[in-house]
Design a protein around this nucleic acid. Structure first.
Lengths: 139, 139
DNA sequence: CCTGATACTTGATGATGTCAACGTTTGATT
DNA sequence: AATCAAACGTTGACATCATCAAGTATCAGG
């Protein structure tokens, strides 16, 4: 099958390599913002002005719902997030960023998406190619 | 500065996106092998036949040394890893995979590096380009 | 109404991760 | 040679992350 061509495997291995590298860097980056890696992941998923049900977070994180409860408890106690009952279904609670949370999220994304020096080694043309390919890859 | 060109930022944002997606998938993949995400990370770092000091693992994982102690305790109690005193320096303990650990690691890497269907959407030429670019990116 | 399913919470438990303190070993200084 | 500071790994205390089982409240269909 075409998915297991040598080049496809090689590319994916490199992406996995990248994943583990980032996984090791995240705790350091998170600590600078007084956050844990899990909280960074949460903050990344809650877009400002786009309230999201807790259940959907649990599904995206592929974790138990009770885990989300605890994570939101801590984020809420720090004033980063608000819990609101949904108007449509009073079982679901919808999360939204507070202004503080929104600012912290922006800071986090800024730190995370500031490209490392190694990206400067690519030509602009290669950078554009990389964007095009990754876009197709991630849908 | 050239690092913050729009294309470089865009590319890095996509890679961060990829990172969080994988971060959500890892627990599921790990559970199939009766491992935790952290244990997967450890196993990924210990190459068969290449003993590695615990301190080096702590540095690569950017975590406290005592954390490595606990992780290795569990891996060792499951017979995946061996602790040996280093001949050169009796303070350091060197880790090596057992045959069982080596097999499990191979299984893990196989699952992780099996490219998803979306990679099939790229042409072979694009796959090759991706490999070339990522290689430069990750050193 | 019931009844079952869904959404979230709670409590118990284990794994992950940090910090401070400790014992051992090492290397350099004196 | 004796000492002393630094390095390596371990231990214990503690917070967080994560799962499971059980519970409460709400919804939707019969």
């Amino acid at each position: 099958m075409k998915n297991t061509s040598p080049h496809a495997c090689g590319a994916w291995q490199l992406l996995v390599q990248f994943f583990f590298t980032q996984r090791a860097h995240l705790p350091l980056l998170a600590a600078e913002l007084q956050l844990s890696p899990a909280q960074c992941h949460m903050l990344h998923l809650i877009e400002p002005g786009r309230p999201i049900p807790m259940g959907q977070l649990a599904e995206t994180l592929a974790c138990d719902a009770s885990n989300v409860t605890g994570l939101v408890d801590r984020l809420e106690s720090r004033g980063l997030v608000r819990r609101r009952p949904s108007a449509a279904d009073r079982r679901v609670k919808v999360l939204d960023l507070t202004p503080t949370g929104s600012r912290l999220r922006a800071l986090l994304l800024d730190r995370m998406t500031t490209p490392p020096a190694t990206l400067g080694r690519l030509s602009v043309r290669e950078q554009r190619t990389l964007v095009r390919i990754l876009t197709r890859l991630l849908e």
